[in-house]
């Protein structure tokens, strides 16, 4: 077992190396990395729900979507958020994500397991329907084009500058979530994930814990959406579709749920694979489907779970595998 501090050190070194190398690798790599990091914030918010609270949300794109649309609407209709007020938009994006999650949470938290999955799916689809339908605000199917990125002394139009900004947001989100899951609150969440009934008996208000986690995840989703809108300069209903939510779930599982870092790694792999393969061959969807199937069958704990799978192999094999499988849903 590597100690916790060493792990943190490894992650920090990897992050710094990433921030150092990417800007020197050509502007397209910078763009890809920026996209992946913005999306990784969304994936980490999914991980907060899935890995640390045991709730698999199929509607996380909703918060992502409101963050993105907020940014685009403010920028184009009110010319707000293109200077220093960009930071206000960031705050508003987070708050809007939280607000929407606090509304949706009222419906969703009560349900468990597959019903939670279904209700978040339906709620996510409602937001998609709004984005698609509310023409005067969202531009409907055409979406919204933004003209350029904010400039507040720091010109975000420069891809490298923007990369560093998104990197900072990504790193701060990672640290904030890490601190959160290590806090007393985070530990109670883990307790709820493992044994909800016992926590109830111990006097915890499990509903409230889950509700708060849901709202926090919504906030990070909103933040990711703000960054995503500026990364692409374009927001359309495609941002809010069901596959965005399902993709983010897969990325978390691929990297390893309950590790935060795994969510980021999973995002990087899916983005990389998609970019690389879609340029190379027309059948990249086989590879993506294959990744889904193989991850689920062979790596239920994700890539971050490989070390522990190896350890289990060396200790009596099958019991280890069974133990993994009985992880409660």
């Amino acid at each position: 077992m590597i100690s916790q501090n060493v792990k943190i050190l490894i992650v920090a070194v990897c992050l710094l190396a990433f921030a150092y190398i990417v800007p020197q690798s050509g502007s397209f790599v910078v763009l890809l990395a920026t996209r992946a990091m913005a999306f990784a914030i969304l994936a980490m918010s999914v991980d907060l729900l899935l890995g640390f609270t045991g709730m698999s949300s199929m509607g996380q794109a909703a918060y992502f979507g409101v963050g993105a649309y907020l940014t685009a609407v403010l920028a184009t209709k009110f010319h707000f958020g293109m200077g220093w007020d960009f930071w206000l938009v960031v705050v508003m994006g987070i708050l809007l994500g939280c607000a929407l999650a606090s509304l949706f949470g009222l419906f969703a938290i009560r349900a468990g397991g597959v019903y939670f999955l279904m209700i978040t799916l339906a709620l996510g689809q409602c937001v998609w329907g709004l984005a698609y339908r509310w023409n005067s605000l969202t531009g409907g199917d055409n979406g919204i084009n933004m003209s350029g990125r904010p400039n507040f002394g720091l010109d975000l139009g420069n891809e490298v500058t923007f990369f560093y900004l998104v990197f900072a947001f990504f790193a701060v989100s990672l640290i904030a979530l890490f601190v959160l899951v290590r806090s007393t609150f985070g530990r109670s969440l883990a307790g709820i994930r493992e044994r909800e009934l016992r926590m109830q008996i111990l006097g915890y208000n499990t509903w409230l814990h889950k509700y708060i986690a849901f709202i926090i995840a919504g906030g990070f989703g909103g933040l990711a959406g703000v960054l995503w809108a500026h990364t692409n300069g374009h927001v359309s209903p495609e941002t809010v579709v069901l596959t965005t939510s399902v993709d983010s779930l897969l990325m978390v599982v691929l990297g390893g749920a309950g590790t935060l870092v795994g969510a980021a790694i999973g995002t990087a792999i899916v983005f990389g694979l998609r970019e690389f393969l879609s340029t190379l061959v027309p059948w990249w969807q086989y590879a993506l489907g294959g990744v889904y199937v193989l991850t689920i069958l062979y790596l239920p704990m994700g890539l971050m779970g490989i070390p522990s799978r190896f350890r289990q192999r060396t200790q009596g094999k099958d019991e280890g595998a069974k133990k993994l499988a009985t992880k409660p849903s």
């Binding site: 502007s27 763009l31 692409n232 495609e238 990249w284």
Partner: peptide, 18 residues
């Protein structure tokens, strides 16, 4: 391949250009 998604199209266009 833009996969029929506008934001993917943007990435691909930038890839082609850059």
């Amino acid at each position: 391949d833009d996969q029929g998604k506008p934001d993917t199209g943007v990435t691909k266009a930038k890839k082609l250009i850059l």
